[in-house]
Design a protein around this nucleic acid. Sequence first.
DNA 1: TCCTTTCACATACCGATGGTATGTGAAGTA
DNA 2: TACTTCACATACCATCGGTATGTGAAAGGA
Lengths: 203, 203
Amino acid sequence: MPDAHHTTRARQRELTRGALVREGRRLFAAEGYAAVGLAEIVRAAGVTKGALYHHFDGKAALFRAVLEVVQQEVAGRVAAAAGAEDDPWAQLTAGCRAFLTAGTDPEVQRIMLLDGPAVLGWNEWRALDEAASARHLTEALAGLTAAGEIPPQPVEPLTRLLSGAMNEAALWLASSHGPTDLDDTWAALSRMLEALRAGPPAR
Amino acid sequence: MPDAHHTTRARQRELTRGALVREGRRLFAAEGYAAVGLAEIVRAAGVTKGALYHHFDGKAALFRAVLEVVQQEVAGRVAAAAGAEDDPWAQLTAGCRAFLTAGTDPEVQRIMLLDGPAVLGWNEWRALDEAASARHLTEALAGLTAAGEIPPQPVEPLTRLLSGAMNEAALWLASSHGPTDLDDTWAALSRMLEALRAGPPAR
DNA sequence: TCCTTTCACATACCGATGGTATGTGAAGTA
DNA sequence: TACTTCACATACCATCGGTATGTGAAAGGA
């Protein structure tokens, strides 16, 4: 029997792996993927490189594990914000707003938005993103089109456009010091979303 | 007198630098920034590492020079498409469409959209982007708001949202094989742009 | 209980890479 | 011609990601 977690070995294993992911996340976020070495990570975690290569296939694999944690956290915040609403449309807007604010966190930025695509490649990054938060966006949009609140159209391009817009906006917000920048950005994004609901304007 | 370009030395200098940028671009685009070594670049260019470090401060500086070339090319295509139109609104849409198609080029993708922000940092990447193509977008939006075609609002957030949407859409298009994906994406983006012109819908 | 196996690491080591310090010969200059 | 400058080439180094192997404690069976 695996006896997961209750044996001495399983407990220690989880502890070591957790420390590696935790310190890896801290250092990757602080200095960036390329700037931090494995020696620094294992020293901070109190282990050696042998432990790291026992748990992960390499530096990129550790980063991938870190990215998964970060994305799950962001997805949790988005889902919580959306879950607090009843109306499907309100759920979409609340989720987008939560994502926008979550993206302003420097840790999220560096790991999820900057290094993520470059280190893992865009396809793998997108697969993780899809599994975490982008899935909610797709489902929300699909539900709204099915309900007739959004004119029928492929949801995939819409998801990518909105996701990219929010990612870039979050990165910009981090390096802009205007007090109204967040509000202005949200106002513009909100107008984009409203335009979806209203459908294409009569010409 | 500098005698720029007409002396033997200046001519040779330009040749060497050009070869480094050209081969660097080819290799960076093909394998990605991290995967290609300086030895490979200088061998392809027919010089040595001494030449590279004579012209550039390091690997990142060479990449920066490559990125500038790529961004100028994209900006040229966007400006050409926009310049073919007379109406300011048609210029905006034509420019956006040109940018979207330009972004599907694998070379542009890898260098400008994937490695660019991660290698140089988002702030420096954005400064280059602003100097090249994003400036046109900002000016077009500013002109349209001044002309009353777009409701008055800060143009900076709008620029970032649209720029991010197009960047992400271009990356997605590269790895999607649906024949109508490009058309669908452009249709969705076009609706977003139209929504700007129409202004916020009555609620 | 004793022996064996497995596992979760630690230790030692290697090739490759970005970067630097220095040498060199031709092009420019007085 | 003598001297200086420049555009590289050569030689070298520290560090990094990755690997191969060793090791001692925990798990499992008799």
